[in-house]
Simulated scan of single mutants.
Amino acid sequence: MGIKESSTNNENKKNMEHSCSEIYAVNLISGRWILSICYHLKQGKMRFSELKDKIPNITERMLTLQLKKMEQEDLISKTVYAEVPLKVEYELTEIAKKLIPVLDQLETWGKEHKNKKDNRPS
């Protein structure tokens, strides 16, 4: 369920995005699935079924919705090949490929934070 376009919360979000590039960027890639899709596409082009196999907990409908959203936001490009059966590949756009070092840093930071938290005395 999304935020209503006219809500105060949505207005605050838009104002924050306008004044702060970091918040804009985080809002663009936030959500349960977008980072995961980016993570898998950083390896290169993938077909829908390959992405679905790599992200087993996502439904086909949710993957379709997320891919459409990412395409609208210029995070991925979709190439449709005129073959039978139809072949469709997704890949990160050039601007999204610039996220790869950030994703790598997030992965490193996440591992460090998780290890520190897991090894903390109770």
Rank of each mutant, 00 (worst) to 15 (best):
T8V: 13
P101V: 08
L75E: 02
I37W: 00
N57V: 09
N115H: 06
K87G: 03
I29L: 13
V26P: 10
G2I: 07
T8S: 11
M62E: 13
S7C: 14
H113N: 10
T108Q: 07
Q43M: 11
K87I: 13
A82C: 08
E112P: 00
D74F: 03
W109P: 00
Y24T: 10
E50P: 01
P101M: 11
D118H: 07
R47Y: 06
I95S: 15
D104W: 05
L35T: 06
K54V: 02
Y81C: 04
L86Q: 13
T93D: 04
Y81A: 07
R32A: 09
I95P: 00
R32C: 11
E89V: 08
S36F: 04
Q72V: 02
Q66G: 03
I29F: 13
T8G: 09
E112N: 05
H40W: 11
I55R: 02
K87L: 14
I23D: 02
L35P: 06
K78P: 00
K42D: 01
K117E: 12
I23T: 09
L67M: 03
I29D: 06
M16T: 14
K52A: 07
Y81F: 14
L103D: 03
G31L: 12
V80S: 02
I37T: 02
P56H: 06
D104V: 05
K68Q: 07
K97H: 03
G2H: 10
W109S: 11
I55Y: 01
H18P: 01
E71W: 00
S77P: 01
R61T: 13
L28W: 08
S30D: 14
I34D: 01
K68V: 00
E89Q: 05
E50S: 09
Y90I: 00
K114Y: 07
K114S: 05
R120Q: 12
K14M: 08
E50T: 04
N115F: 03
F48Y: 09
T108F: 02
E91K: 00
I23Y: 14
R32S: 12
G110A: 08
E60I: 06
R61E: 13
L75Q: 03
I100Q: 02
I100M: 03
E22L: 15
Q66Y: 07
K98L: 14
V26N: 11
R61C: 05
Y39H: 11
K52W: 04
L51R: 06
T108S: 07
A96C: 09
L75H: 01
K87W: 09
E17M: 12
K87S: 09
K4L: 15
V88M: 06
R32P: 08
P56M: 05
T64H: 11
K54I: 02
G110W: 00
L103C: 08
Q72F: 01
P85Y: 07
T64S: 15
